[in-house]
């Protein structure tokens, strides 16, 4: 029977220092950019804090983290496939006409 428990928040620093680089590498190669990789690593750590089972040993813990990170990377890739985005640079290319470039500049200054 799986023994689940919420871990003390202090434990997250040790986990980030121990496994952070490995997870970041994995996510960066899978997703192709550092921002998404950071998001996935963070979500993995939050899940570790809130839902991780009791581990038999270090290898079990590592395997669990890799599995969670891999699944989250798959979610991101699936989301990207269903919600394609356009790079801002590509839009800028389309407005090479001097008459239109000010529109993009104005759009960029709007608050989020």
């Amino acid at each position: 029977m799986r023994n689940t428990s919420v871990r003390p928040t202090d434990s997250i620093e040790e986990v980030v220092h121990t496994y952070g680089n490995m997870l970041f590498r994995l996510c960066l190669i899978t997703l192709g950019n550092a921002s998404d990789a950071e998001d996935v690593v963070q979500e993995t750590m939050i899940k570790y804090l809130q839902k991780a089972p009791k581990f038999e040993n270090g290898e079990h813990e590592k395997a669990w983290l890799i599995k969670v990170a891999t699944n989250k990377c798959r979610d991101v890739l699936r989301y990207r496939k269903n919600h394609p985005v356009v790079d801002v640079e590509e839009i800028m290319e389309l407005t090479k006409d001097a008459n239109d470039s000010h529109i993009i500049d104005a759009l960029m200054t709007l608050p989020e």
Partner: peptide, 19 residues
Amino acid sequence: IEMPKDMQRRIIENCYMET
């Protein structure tokens, strides 16, 4: 490839806040 230190710090901070 290594995770930048500021990224590590952000992740730790955000985990604290989320909890």
